[in-house]
Nucleic acid binder design. Structure first.
Lengths: 102, 102
DNA sequence: TAACTATATGAGCATATGCTCATATACATT
DNA sequence: AATGTATATGAGCATATGCTCATATAGTTA
C-alpha cells in the first residue's frame, strides 16, 4: 500500500479531539452538562438533582471550569453555573438524540 | 427550584453516550478509526502508519471489535479491517472538522 | 513436516481518573 | 465578633486503561 496517500490528522487536532471526547466520556459529566444545557444551576442544586455529594460536584465543576466549558456568577453564597461551550453541548445533544432514536 | 421540571436523560442513554465517547477519547483510537474511515487496512499496515507495535494495534482492534465498531475479513495470513459504525465515524469527522476550522 | 508470517492474547505495569473524607474559604446573618 | 451557609480544595484510595513483553494460534511456503 502507498503510505504517501493517507490524509493524516495533525497531532494537535488529535489531541484536541481527544480532550473533548474525554470530557464527555464520564456519565456524571454527561448528566451535569446536559442539566446545565437546560438551565443555570447552583452547585447544591446539581448535587441534589444528580444525587451526588457536594464535593464530587464541585470537583467536576472545577474540571469543567479549567477546560472553559462552564462559567459561573456569584449571588451571595450561591454560585450559579452555566455552560460556556456550544460546540461541546451540540456534540452531546446530537449523540443523545441519535441514541434515543435508533 | 422545581425539580419536576427537568428533562432527565434515561440512565441507559447516559451509559450508551459515555460508551461512545470513551471509545473516541483515546488519541490512538482516533487515529486508527480515522485511518479506517479512509481505507481498509491490515494490522501490520496500521502499525507501520501509526508507528505502533503490532501488539498495541491488535489490542486496540480487539476493543473495537468487541464494540462492533470495526469488522474484518481474512486474506491468507492478513486480516483486513474496516470500520463498521457510521455514526461513530460521523461524530469523529464532525469534531475533527470543527477543530480544524475554528 | 518444518520453518515462516501475520495476528491474537494473557499478564503485568504505569498512569489517569472519579470519588470520599477532612478541611479551608468567603460571604451572610445574628 | 460569632455562627451559619455554600462552595472549593488537597490527600488518598480504588478502579480503569493503554501499553509492553512473552507467547499462542493459524495459515503459508519450502
Amino acid at each position: 500500500m502507498d503510505r504517501s496517500n493517507h490524509a493524516f490528522l495533525p497531532e494537535r487536532t488529535v489531541e484536541e479531539a481527544s480532550r473533548i471526547f474525554k470530557v464527555l466520556a464520564d456519565p456524571t459529566r454527561i448528566k451535569l452538562l446536559y442539566l446545565l444545557s437546560q438551565e443555570e444551576c447552583s452547585v447544591g442544586h446539581i448535587a441534589e438533582v444528580l444525587q451526588l455529594s457536594q464535593s464530587a460536584v464541585s470537583h467536576q465543576l472545577s474540571t469543567l471550569r479549567n477546560l472553559r466549558l462552564v462559567r459561573y456568577r456569584r449571588e451571595g453564597n450561591t454560585f450559579l453555573y452555566t455552560y460556556d461551550d456550544d460546540h461541546v453541548i451540540s456534540i452531546l445533544t446530537q449523540v443523545v438524540h441519535h441514541i434515543e432514536h435508533e
